[in-house]
């Protein structure tokens, strides 16, 4: 029975002491501690939030970069393809032009050659005619130096003329 009978003295001192403890700790310990903890938690949360935002920003930038890179690569490919096409075209054109020019040149050369040949032939013909005329004149002159032979020829020719 004694054990479960509260004593007034202890009740009194416990009440007084506990309330004083509550007041002092509440003012000088719990308030600063809870404020500090809350403050720190808030800053940590903020830092985490910021880190998350930074990470997102980073991801965004990376994806952007990647997109840019992809685009650049595609552009480069397009440019390269175009260049190749242009090159091929240029090469083709050049080849065509060269071929045409060559053909033209060959043609003109042939014409020239033919012309030259004709001129040369004509010349040769002329010379041959002159030469043969000269030769013929000389031969004739030689043959008709004596009168007898001339008379005989005339007689031969006259004979022929009579018969026809």
């Amino acid at each position: 029975m004694e054990l479960v009978t509260p004593e007034i003295g202890l009740v009194f001192w416990t009440t007084v002491s506990f309330l004083i403890l509550l007041a002092i700790l509440g003012k000088f310990a719990w308030k600063p501690i809870m404020t500090a903890i809350d403050e720190r938690e808030r800053t940590i949360e903020e830092a985490l939030f910021k880190a998350e935002a930074a990470k997102e920003e980073m991801a965004r930038l990376t994806s952007e970069n990647e997109a840019l890179l992809k685009q650049a690569r595609a552009e480069r490919d397009v440019i390269l393809a175009e260049a190749r096409k242009v090159k091929e075209q240029i090469v083709g054109d050049a080849k065509d032009a060269a071929q045409k020019e060559g053909a033209r040149m060959i043609e003109s050369a042939r014409l020239e050659i033919n012309n030259m040949k004709a001129i040369a032939l004509a010349d040769v013909k002329n010379q041959v005619a002159t030469l043969s005329l000269d030769i013929a004149e000389k031969v004739l002159r030689k043959q008709f130096e004596d009168q007898g032979k001339q008379d005989q020829l005339v007689a031969d020719l006259l004979k022929e003329v009579k018969l026809s």
Binding site: I24, A29, P32, I33, A36, I37, E39, T43
Partner: peptide
């Protein structure tokens, strides 16, 4: 004991803020 412990702890919070 409680006062010594917790007031020192609370001053530690002030000293090492954040």
């Amino acid at each position: 004991l409680l006062m010594v412990i917790f007031i020192s702890v609370s001053s530690a919070y002030k000293k090492r803020e954040g």
